[in-house]
């Protein structure tokens, strides 16, 4: 049975200035089985972040249904941990306190929070930075905290909204591998929104392509590349090259590395 099921999702909003009705999401349906890593890609403005926000419970859909483990979603909750593009860390809390926040909300006692936070800090490679404040960290390290903060509460699903988009290229490659390494240990179900085709293929079991506005699912592609994956292996994989070309064509992007 699929863990998340999105059916005929539709999102219409009224522009505040022109009062025109805009359709952000036309008709989107897909399922995610438990433990799968799914990427959502599509041309800019296709509403992929809107879909994630609806699944997160941040905004209410105009139509359609979103069910998590058979239950409809009503508002945000700790069963769906969200990793944000802008990290959204609490500036007044130390790395450790940020990571322990979800546990604190759940009423876990202090000693246990500390133990679990240390465990996750170790896992994401932030040992030695427990007492730092977010502004003292680099972008890459901040997002490690963002991922750790979600992992600490062991959510049913992880929702990641372009988590590496504001991180420099080299660090991004490292973080992608790191997140995959962690994912293989913990195996949470992941909905990953990105505009980066390479990233989508590298990270995912399946890539769902949305068409431009009003969006619908244009393609749903399995990624048969064996795990564990590293960038050097994946770049050389014929499946990667083939799927990449396919996706680029679908998104209307000129592939300047033809046949490479």
């Amino acid at each position: 049975m699929s863990l998340l099921s999105v059916e005929n999702l539709n999102q219409v909003y009224t522009d505040a200035y022109t009062h025109e009705e805009m359709t952000a999401v036309g008709n989107v349906s897909f399922d995610i089985p438990e433990g799968q890593f799914i990427s959502l890609i599509g041309p800019s403005g296709c509403g992929k972040t809107t879909v994630l926000n609806i699944v997160a419970g941040f905004i209410r859909a105009s139509g359609g249904s979103v069910m998590l483990a058979g239950k409809p979603i009503s508002g945000p909750g700790p069963d769906r941990g969200v990793v944000f593009q802008d990290f959204a860390l609490f500036p007044w809390k130390s790395v450790e306190a940020n990571i322990a926040f979800g546990l604190k909300m759940r009423g876990v006692d202090k000693a246990e929070r500390k133990r679990r936070a240390r465990e996750v800090i170790e896992l994401v490679g932030l040992s030695g930075f427990e007492a730092k404040y977010p502004h003292e960290l680099s972008g890459g390290m901040r997002q490690r905290v963002g991922v750790a903060r979600v992992l600490a509460t062991e959510p049913t699903m992880m929702l990641m909204d372009e988590p590496f988009a504001s991180i420099d290229a080299q660090t991004r490659r490292v973080l992608q591998q790191e997140v995959l390494r962690i994912w293989e240990q913990e195996r949470p179900t992941v909905l990953f929104v990105t505009h980066d085709v390479d990233e989508a293929i590298f990270m995912s079991d399946r890539v769902i392509v949305l068409s431009s506005r009003p969006s619908a699912v244009q393609a749903d592609i399995e990624i048969p590349i064996p795990r564990p994956r590293t960038w050097s292996d994946v770049y050389a994989d014929p499946a990667f090259v083939r799927i990449r070309r396919e996706l680029m064509a679908m998104l209307g992007v000129d592939d300047d590395e033809k046949g490479s």
Binding site: G57, G77, R80, F101, G102, R106, V150
Partner: peptide
């Protein structure tokens, strides 16, 4: 997003 993060963490 800070408010959203807090809400989604429970």
């Amino acid at each position: 997003n800070l408010m959203r993060a807090a809400a989604s963490l429970g």
